[in-house]
């Protein structure tokens, strides 16, 4: 599904340059559950941003279904993010001005889904995630766990092939974090590819594949049975 070849990412800070990623080679197959681990500042989030086409590598190639995507125009990259990827952030990143259902409906409006269809789909997703009584609540009226579930519903709204989760439990208490992990695992068992950044070994151990990044390089990789 995704093939990264010799990906490098350098940040130019004026007089000094920082290499955030160095010679990353990785293949992600459809249905994978990949945990990206490593200490703070190791380059995990940069790796996830490049994987989600939120950022570009300085060198190397990124193939999505054999298409080299860095050369695609902005509009096409936006379409890929919208239709094929779903993002779950550590700090939820919901829009405080929109209700739960409107937050979930938003990516579908970019995909051109009609109002009634996107409202129905958003309602179903929130219901599936146990938030059917929270549809019209603003994020500020929801708990952290509920907000993250709304964010997951939003990530699922366009039925993506890949969920990119950046420390999705980082801001949650352990019981709520567990609920989120279970939800992601449930999605993976339904065929959705999951890439999750975490520095929690226990959470990483639950993924089928693990990579450990240190100083921008993949230090080790592991495939679990």
């Amino acid at each position: 599904m995704i093939r990264l070849e010799n990906i490098e990412k350098e940040f130019d800070l004026g007089q000094i340059k920082i290499k955030a990623l160095d010679n990353i080679n990785l293949t992600i197959n459809r249905g994978d559950y990949l945990a990206v681990m490593g200490p703070s500042g190791s380059g995990k989030s940069t790796f996830l941003n490049i994987l989600g086409i939120l950022d570009f590598s300085t060198s190397g190639q990124y193939f999505l279904e054999d298409y080299e995507i860095s050369s695609l125009p902005d509009k096409e990259q936006a379409r890929i993010r919208n239709k094929h990827f779903g993002f779950v952030f550590q700090s939820f990143n919901l829009f405080s001005e929109l209700s739960a259902i409107e937050n979930v409906m938003l990516p579908m409006s970019y995909a051109g889904v009609k109002y009634n269809a996107r409202k129905k789909r958003a309602g179903e997703l929130l219901d599936w995630l146990g938030l059917n009584d929270r549809l019209y609540h603003l994020p500020s009226m929801l708990s952290g766990g509920e907000q993250q579930r709304v964010a997951i519903a939003r990530a699922l709204s366009n039925d993506p092939d890949l969920i990119l989760a950046d420390e999705p439990t980082g801001n949650l208490p352990s019981d709520k974090g567990e609920e989120i992990l279970e939800t992601l695992e449930k999605l993976n068992s339904n065929g959705v590819t999951i890439v999750m950044v975490t520095h929690n070994d226990a959470q990483g151990d639950r993924a089928h594949k693990r990579i450990h990044i240190k100083d921008g390089k993949i230090e080790w990789r592991k495939v679990c049975a």
């Binding site: 509009k75 936006a78 993010r81 919208n82 993002f87 990143n93 990516p107 970019y110 995909a111």
Partner: peptide
């Protein structure tokens, strides 16, 4: 700025 970044992540193009 952050909201705009999220919108881009959710599929908004620069034009949108």
């Amino acid at each position: 700025r952050k909201s705009l970044g999220i919108l881009k992540a959710l599929g908004a193009s620069t034009n949108k």
